[in-house]
C-alpha cells in the first residue's frame, strides 16, 4: 500500500510541475523542470478546461518549437537541463540564459584565442574549451602557400569558429567567406587580456547593451570581446587600461541605474 501511495504522489507531482513554456518566460528554471510546448491560437480555450487534458493533446497540433541552449525535447514536452532564466523570442524560440564560466565552442562564435603551438600547416589555439582549436595558416587575409602569416606562439588571435561540434576538434578561421579579415586576425601586442563570465560577455555584446558606448564617453579605448569570456582592452595609459578593465568586471552585478551613477562619478573626476 505504501509504495502505491508513494508512486501516486510522484505522478501527481510531475503533472503539477508541467507548466506551459510561455508562463515561465523571464523566470528562473532548474534542471528537471518540465515545460509544455506553446499552443496554437485556437487551442487556448481548450487548454483552459483542464491541465490534465492538455497533456493528452497530440503533439502535431502544437507549433513547432525551437529549443535553444539548456532545453531538450522529451516526447510532447520540453525538459530543462540547465539552471537560468527562461527566455523567449518570436515565434517559438526558447532558451535558458545562464551564468557560466566554462566556454563550450559554438559554430559562428567570435572568440579570442591564444596560440599555443605551431605544427605543420596549422596552429593550435587555446580558446578556453575542453580541446584546443586548430587554425590553418591559410585562414588569414592575404595568406598563400608562399606568403605565410606572421603568427608566433603566445600571440592573441580573434577568430570565428567554422567547425564546432561535440564530436570534432573545433576549427577557427580569421577570414570571412569572402576572404576578408573584417577585424579578425592577430592583435594585441600591448593592452590587457582578462577573463570574465560568459553572462557578462553576452550582456556587453547585446544589441541593446549600452555599457561600451557609455564607457567610451569617459575614455577613448580599444576593446576586443570574445564569446569565450575573454576581453582585451587597451587605453592611452596603463592606468586607464586597468580602470576600464575593473569597471567592466564590476558591471556584471550592477543595474543600469547603478552603472550610470558610477559612470557619472568617473566623468566628474575626469573634469
Amino acid at each position: 500500500m505504501q509504495i502505491v501511495h508513494v508512486l501516486g504522489l510522484s505522478v501527481y507531482i510531475m503533472l503539477q510541475m508541467a507548466v506551459r513554456a510561455e508562463q515561465r518566460v523571464g523566470q528562473p528554471v532548474l534542471p528537471g523542470d518540465v515545460l509544455l510546448m506553446p499552443l496554437q491560437e485556437g487551442e487556448q480555450e481548450e487548454e483552459e478546461n483542464s491541465a490534465l487534458l492538455a497533456l493528452r493533446v497530440p503533439s502535431q497540433t502544437r507549433l513547432r518549437m525551437t529549443c535553444g541552449p539548456g532545453l531538450r525535447q522529451r516526447g510532447g514536452s520540453v525538459l530543462v537541463t540547465r539552471s537560468g532564466i527562461l527566455c523567449h523570442r518570436i515565434p517559438v524560440l526558447y532558451w535558458v540564459d545562464s551564468q557560466q564560466k566554462r566556454y563550450v565552442p559554438v559554430k559562428g562564435d567570435h572568440v579570442i584565442g591564444i596560440v599555443t603551438a605551431k605544427s605543420g600547416d596549422v596552429f593550435k589555439v587555446d580558446v578556453g574549451g575542453s580541446e584546443q582549436a586548430s587554425l590553418s595558416y591559410l585562414a588569414f587575409e592575404g595568406a598563400t602557400k608562399r606568403n605565410r602569416p606572421n603568427v608566433q606562439v603566445g600571440d592573441l588571435v580573434y577568430g570565428q569558429f567554422v567547425v564546432a561540434n561535440k564530436d570534432m576538434e573545433p576549427e577557427l578561421v580569421c577570414i570571412d567567406s569572402c576572404g576578408r579579415a573584417v577585424g579578425m586576425g592577430v592583435f594585441g601586442h600591448e593592452g590587457l587580456l582578462f577573463k570574465v563570465s560568459l553572462g557578462l560577455v553576452r550582456k556587453l555584446l547585446a544589441p541593446q547593451g549600452e555599457i561600451i558606448q557609455e564607457l567610451g564617453k569617459i575614455y577613448p579605448f580599444e576593446i576586443v570581446i570574445g564569446m569565450n569570456g575573454r576581453i582585451w582592452v587597451k587605453a592611452k595609459t596603463t592606468q586607464q587600461t586597468l580602470i576600464v578593465a575593473n569597471i567592466l568586471e564590476a558591471c556584471e552585478h550592477m543595474t543600469a541605474e547603478q552603472r550610470k551613477q558610477v559612470f557619472a562619478k568617473f566623468s566628474d573626476n575626469m573634469m
Binding site: 534542471p31 528537471g32 540547465r82 539552471s83 537560468g84
Partner: peptide, 11 residues
C-alpha cells in the same frame, strides 16, 4: 553542478 551550468536530467 547547477552553478557550473552542466546539463542535467534532473536535480
Amino acid at each position: 553542478l547547477l552553478d557550473a551550468g552542466l546539463p542535467m536530467k534532473s536535480l
